[in-house]
Design a protein around this nucleic acid. Sequence first.
DNA 1: GCCATCTAGTGGTCTATACCTCTAATTCGA
DNA 2: TCGAATTAGAGGTATAGACCACTAGATGGC
Lengths: 259, 259
Amino acid sequence: MPVIALPDQPLDETSPTPLYFQLRELIADAIKGGQCGPDCQLPSERELAEKYGLSRMTVRQATVALVSDGLLIRRRGKGTYVAPPKYERGLFGLTSFSEDMKKRGLTPSARIISLRQVPAPSKTADIMGLAPGSTLVLLERLRLADDQPMAYEFSYLSFQRFPDLTEDLLGAGSLYELFWARYGIRLSHAWQSIEAVLASPREAKLLSINQGAPLLLLERTAYDETNTVVEFVKSLYRADRYRFSVQLQQNAGKWKGDG
Amino acid sequence: MPVIALPDQPLDETSPTPLYFQLRELIADAIKGGQCGPDCQLPSERELAEKYGLSRMTVRQATVALVSDGLLIRRRGKGTYVAPPKYERGLFGLTSFSEDMKKRGLTPSARIISLRQVPAPSKTADIMGLAPGSTLVLLERLRLADDQPMAYEFSYLSFQRFPDLTEDLLGAGSLYELFWARYGIRLSHAWQSIEAVLASPREAKLLSINQGAPLLLLERTAYDETNTVVEFVKSLYRADRYRFSVQLQQNAGKWKGDG
DNA sequence: GCCATCTAGTGGTCTATACCTCTAATTCGA
DNA sequence: TCGAATTAGAGGTATAGACCACTAGATGGC
């Protein structure tokens, strides 16, 4: 039962950032650093208070927040521990196809069907908060899992924001990774709806299924931190290979799940 | 800008329930009571502390928790207010068909197809944590919205737990309301999966659609506070009338959504 | 050898106080 | 009359100390 290692440097008393918040980041970084896995123990509140010259209440303000973030677990009479990476927690929320497949133990890849500029359909323009007829980038891809067709995907992106997207840039990789690596965009939240539809002849052919086979239609509108729409995606998933799961909570409508 | 009214009776100092928790429930009940809508102001922390004979820190412990529950909003320099009922929040999580339809502006009802005892299929017994062959209550219902078929639903319940379920008890009402009213059971969380399937002849006839039409298959396993399975439900929703939506969050995998 | 008791250390609750920043209304001067 | 300064009151941060309930290991009696 190892104890997690925290930096010895004192906190910055002069910073406008509150002390409890500094400590919170410190601990969060140490956990995410991963040198100390689940069930790893945190120094006791009294030890932390002495180490950083804080009162115990201030230390608690940091650790309590981390507990509600799901990074720590408290056990009365025993101590505070790094939370185990629960299956339903943390990892997800807003995941890309690539992440999703990896979590399912499958190897994701993609075949680009087309990448071109299109005038925004009125419904799409409305969703993306653009003027009707604005130029959009339409990325049409076949998503594969273990080299078998899994989904047929249409991604609409603002041309103004992504004027230089090329097939080379995309490769077979994750669009979300590209957002971050090339454009510095981090997605913060999304709205997603799920419907059941039947495969058209074209969809059936691409997905290697029969015409009229059931498909899950996922529509996702993803936002960045400034609440601007980054992409609007329509994905058609093969129902025989894909199932969407969520965990529902009674309390405050907080959900934990996976797509 | 009215101020929310709180009971004048003092908290129970002798109770094993912590004072901050008592205050928290008090405020939560007052908000849920609904006599005071959004943007209604809470008495200041100092006022609450004096009113209930608490220190301000204890009052904060209650209000801070309510903020993270989404019931309150704090505005520095101004005050603490009842949170607006955000569309994506609170209302849901684990909702019954009846609640779900009401939120969509539809009137829910139900037609009982059958209510009988069956031996548990092995998969179902496994899911419900019972011995294979245990007796289950199978409730088969057609769910209507505005008197039009919306879903075809199979609910499996433990016979041991619900030995006296009758059609009269059920009426056309909500099963979840019955759980609470008659058995004192409150659901706490559930695991739900969503697939796309095609309508069989029987399903098509009951739902008034064509054979082979697309359906959303929702499977839900609902648990009570003791982590015991209360029910296992399979619902077939008409894809032309029903769409499932969720809001995804990047952060800690906390989801907010609606089915 | 076994079981009850003790004890050190943990998180859980609570108090009383202090000073900070922020907001908005009031006051006061030009 | 208008704008700047004051001020009251809100939440935000932080302290030091107290006692409680719980856990688990150590102690001690039988």
